[in-house]
Every structure is written in structure tokens, then in C-alpha cells.
Design a protein around this nucleic acid. Structure first.
Lengths: 332, 332
DNA sequence: TTGTAAGCGTTATCAA
DNA sequence: TTGATAACGCTTACAA
């Protein structure tokens, strides 16, 4: 078979106009659903668009009108399958409202956000600095940040309630008879780690249970850092009765390290996570379930409503709840 | 605190030019690294760019030059954490070559591909029809498809070798003494399912092992369909000795169904998967490891090289290999 | 109801 | 070494 490489079978608005025997502006009017076009003309134009496979050049459009139906979602951690669910929720919502979604990474985030190609952003990656978001956000370009707070009227937050479920989780452990805790944290500047840890400390204090900083380890949410943390505890000092981990991945790593070193979970040591990822389910890990899909959906909906002009919007708090499983048996 | 909503603190090339006391074209020349600018002018302009937080508007740029540094990656299945790894590989490669990546879903795929905002696409979602890809692909807009073949000079394939590892896997099972097989397939029109199944049948035939179509079940790669498949086998007929599943998710589902019904894995029934997802690792599931990160990286590199003008490119075959774990003990 | 023309922010050509 | 200007594809007053 022989293929001819058509230099470009892409037709522009001009081609459509010419073929339809109308002016460019008429075509534009048809495409933008303006009322000032005759029914017959409208149909003819529409048909020809189909026929020529015409799609508006987004650069031209963005340049002129500054408008766009594209929403950006930025994320950065490829290790948490977590994010796929959030994306799913965002994607479904965005489609419901007839917007388009482009998912981008930190590297290109600024470029995309500044390029007029989108109408707003949902930002998850903590690596994107506050300053960038503040400099980019405006009433015409609102931003929704996940699990983060930025003091700016055009940057809204959708936040997971970390504090209350973690409090319940730890109180539950206390009630089960646990007395000696270790905490494996995520990156220390992130809102979620701060809150999860605060809840942990508050409950211990409330129950007059002693906690030494020696039993605190700052990880990075990766499985490896949980592994490392547990390993360090194993090698250097007495084991706690329970590892409270700031997410499931690290809990998994901790379990791995424990079992490799002959400590049975949960008979010898208990472990808890946070997120309720698939792996937690499989392992029977006690954790906190975050409604990921819903989180994405809500964030997208929120952004779209704000873009459409809704006022008086306050930050949203998404509830999460404890899931008790096998890694935390009664200790009494 | 009171915020003034600056209509736009975005400064354009004009602002830079004015403030620097030069013409627009000079600024453009500086920014594009042209040699025809005095050293002193260049530095002044550069400083002012920083000062004003100037960022070239990519819409304007794209419009004029018709060029773009954006690559599209399309995917559609939010259930396989698998894809996150592929995205990771693509993202890293794209960044290495100073391109930008936008990840998009089926819904907006055509719009984005036809809107001139990108220089090429990597397509994974089987739901995108061949015809669309063919109509969009050209020497100026090449496409790389994953796990799929399309007969067009500007659509290149990066394919996972499904056949050989599946052959090895099944032969291994035969060698271990398994004689009674069931196969849980993915969507029937997909290249990977076809090949995985073919390898399965070929090995059985080679070893003169009988296989009845009753032991074939067409799933959809979701955990639920594996669950359902196993359930059906459990309810309706004799169990096989081993479930060969076309991916890990379905294997997981099958295991769940089996255990819920009192059949122990692997003592009573063996199970294998494909993909080597995190869950497979945790479960001790025998499977085939696909180098996901590398797959993404290779696909992106391939696309970029083609965009940059490399000729004579042939499809790429990515190797995968069997990982033996606990779900398939010797049966002798 | 339709068409004309200006202009969006950039790059590229050519003249100064 | 610089600057004026046309052009990219589109939208949108405004004129017809």
C-alpha cells in the first residue's frame, strides 16, 4: 500500500467559510452558538465543518478571546494510586459540565497556567509554590488547591478532614489497650501531615500517655521511607506496640521491614495507615478511608461553579472515616 | 486583609519592551536566543523580564509559529495503577527533552489533537477509534500507540511482548504438573488479550493438554470481572487446577471469590496474573512483570525522535518477564 | 442576517 | 544592532 502524506488535511475556518460561501465571521458565529445566523446558513456551515473535519485552532481562539473550556489538574506523585481515583472524579465532573481536562505535572505547570489555554486550575502537587499560584490566580483565573490553604480570595481550598478521623483512630487504639506508640509522618510542611500528627499527639495527651520524640520519624509518603523508619526502630531501640503511619504506603513498608526481621504483624506489633488504598484492603490494614473519587469530583465542581460566577464560596471540608481491620487487634 | 483583584498582573512582551526602551522585536530576539542583540541590551531586557514576571504567552507563540512543545498522552482506565507508572516514564522523558506533557482523556482527545496545541500524541485508550487517529496523524503530527497496531506511516507502535512471557508462564505451569486450566481474558478485541490467549492455547496444544471453551471467560480487566468469572466457575462446574488471568486485577478478584467460597489459594486452586502491579507483589501472585516506567519512557522518546525528523523507524517491542511467586506451587 | 475589519501576543522578514 | 510591519486563526464590534 502507498500512503500519501497530506501536508495537512487540517482545514481552518477560512476553508469552511469559502466552501460554505459565507464569511469567516459567520462561521465563527455559528460555532459559538450566536443567534444572529439564519437557520439554513447555520446548518450548511455545520455540515461543512463535519465534512472538512474542522476543529478550531485553540491558539487562535485563546489568543483572541482569552476564554477557554479547559481545566487544568496538576499532580506530582506517581507512587500513590490514590491519585488515579481523584483524577477519575475530576474527569467525570469536568465532562458533566462540558469542560475539557488537561492533566499536567509540576514542570510545565507555570507555562500552562500562564498561557491562556485554560480557565482555571486544580492543584495538588505541594511542590508548586504558593507564590506562583498567587501570582497566577485572579477572578478570571480561579484556582482550587487540594489539602492546602493559601490566603487569597481566588484560591479556594478543598481539604480532607485529617484531624478528626486520626483522633478517632488513635483513641480507638488507646481503647484497645495500646500504650506505646510510634508515629511515621509524611513531609513535614504539608497540611495533612501536620494535622494527622497533631491529632495523634492530642489524643495521647488527653489520655496521659507519654510520647517521646524518639518515636517520631519523618518520612515522605513512599513505601521505602516506611520501610526505613521501621528498620531504624528495629535496629536502634525497643519496638513500639503500634506504628501509626501517616499513609498506607509507609505502613506497607513498615510491615515489610517488620516481617523481614521476624516481628509478626499484628501479633507482635500493630500498624495503621491512612488513605485506604487498594493495598490496605488487601493487607487487612487498619486505616482511614478518604473518598478519593468524591474529592476529585467536588474539587472540579467547586472550580467550575466559581468560574461560572458563583460568589461567597467557602472552603470545603471532606470527611474521612476510620476502617478497622486486622492489623490492630485488641491488646487487653 | 484586603485584596485588590488586579485585573491581570500578567505583563506582556509590550510591557517589557516599553520598560526596557527597546522594540518588541528586540525582546523577542533576546528571548529566543538570537545572536543579533547587543550584550548590554540583552541583559537589560532579561532583567526586566524577571522583574515583571514576564512569561511568553504560548497561545501567541503557537499561533504564529504553528509549533508547539506539547505532547499529549491519552489514557482512559482509572482502575489500573499501572498507568501511573507509565505516565511517570513518559513525564520524565518528556521533561528530559524539554517538551511539555498534557494528559487527556477520551472525551477531549479529538478536540485537543485537532486544535494545534500539541506536536504529537501517545495514545493508550483503546476507546479512541483507529479512524480518528488515522485522520489526525501526519508527518507533522505523528502518533505513538501503545499495545496496538495501526497501518499508517505516521502512527508507530510500542508493543509489549505478551506472547513470549505468557508462553513461558503457561509452560512453567505445565512443567509444575498443572493439567486443568481456566483462562480469564480481557476485552476480546484488544491486541494484548488476543496474544496472551493465543500463547496460552499454543502451549496447551503443544503439550497435548485438552482445553474446553467452557473454561474461557471474557472479562474486562477489572477486579470485579475476575471475581465474577471465578464465581461462575465455582457455581457451575468443576474448578480448574489453575486460573490463568489476563491481568492482576482480575486475578485478585478471582482469589477473593475463591476464598470467600472456601477454596484455598494456592492449596486448592492456583492463580496467575499479568502486569505485576503492587497488589500482585503483596499477594504473592505469580505474574508477568511489564516494565511500565520504561514503556512510557520509550514511547515518549520514540515520539520525540520522530517529531525531530528521524526516519526509518520501526515498531518497538518491549520485553516482559515471568515472576514466579506463591500462588503457583508445584503440583507433583 | 451577513460581512468588514481591528486586534489578541507572538515571530520573522526586511529595511534602517 | 535595532525597529517597523505583516502575518498566524480566531472573535467581536460595528457597518451594511
Amino acid at each position: 500500500m502507498k500512503f500519501v502524506d497530506k501536508e495537512s488535511d487540517m482545514s481552518g475556518i477560512k476553508d469552511v467559510a469559502k466552501k460554505a460561501g459565507v464569511s469567516i465571521s459567520t462561521v465563527s458565529n455559528v460555532l459559538n452558538g450566536r443567534k444572529n445566523v439564519g437557520k439554513e446558513t447555520r446548518e450548511r456551515v455545520l455540515n461543512i465543518c463535519k465534512e472538512l473535519n474542522y476543529y478550531p485552532n485553540s491558539a487562535g481562539r485563546a489568543l483572541k478571546s482569552g476564554k477557554s473550556n479547559v481545566l487544568l489538574f496538576n499532580f506530582g506523585d506517581f507512587d500513590r494510586s490514590f491519585y488515579l481515583k481523584i483524577i477519575h472524579g475530576i474527569s467525570d465532573c469536568v465532562n458533566d459540565y462540558d469542560y475539557d481536562l488537561a492533566i499536567i505535572t509540576e514542570k510545565s505547570c507555570e507555562k500552562f497556567m500562564r498561557s491562556n489555554m485554560s480557565a482555571g486550575s486544580i492543584v495538588l502537587d505541594e511542590k508548586i509554590p504558593d507564590e506562583l499560584l498567587i501570582s497566577v490566580a485572579s477572578r478570571k483565573y480561579p484556582i482550587v488547591v487540594l489539602d492546602r490553604k493559601i490566603d487569597n480570595p481566588n484560591i479556594k481550598s478543598v481539604i480532607i478532614d485529617n484531624y478528626n478521623p486520626m483522633k478517632k483512630l488513635v483513641q480507638g487504639l488507646v481503647d484497645k489497650g495500646y500504650k506505646k506508640f510510634a508515629f511515621i509522618a509524611g513531609p513535614e510542611h504539608t497540611l495533612d501531615t501536620i494535622e494527622r500528627y497533631k491529632a495523634f499527639r492530642d489524643v495521647l495527651e488527653l489520655n496521659a500517655i507519654e510520647f517521646s520524640e524518639n518515636y517520631y520519624y519523618a518520612g515522605n509518603y513512599r513505601e521505602k521511607s516506611g520501610y526505613l523508619a521501621a528498620k531504624i526502630f528495629i535496629l536502634s531501640q525497643e519496638l513500639p506496640e503500634v506504628f501509626v503511619c501517616a499513609n498506607d504506603n509507609m505502613a506497607l513498608g513498615a510491615i515489610k521491614a517488620l516481617e523481614e526481621n521476624g516481628h509478626r504483624v499484628p501479633q507482635d506489633v500493630a500498624v495503621t495507615g491512612f488513605d485506604n488504598e487498594q493495598s490496605a484492603q488487601i493487607m487487612g490494614l487498619t486505616t482511614v478511608d478518604i473518598p478519593k473519587y468524591e474529592l476529585g469530583f467536588i474539587a472540579a465542581k467547586y472550580l467550575i461553579e466559581y468560574i461560572k460566577g458563583k460568589k461567597q464560596m467557602h472552603d470545603i471540608l471532606v470527611e474521612a472515616k476510620v476502617i478497622w481491620r486486622e492489623t490492630t487487634p485488641d491488646r487487653k
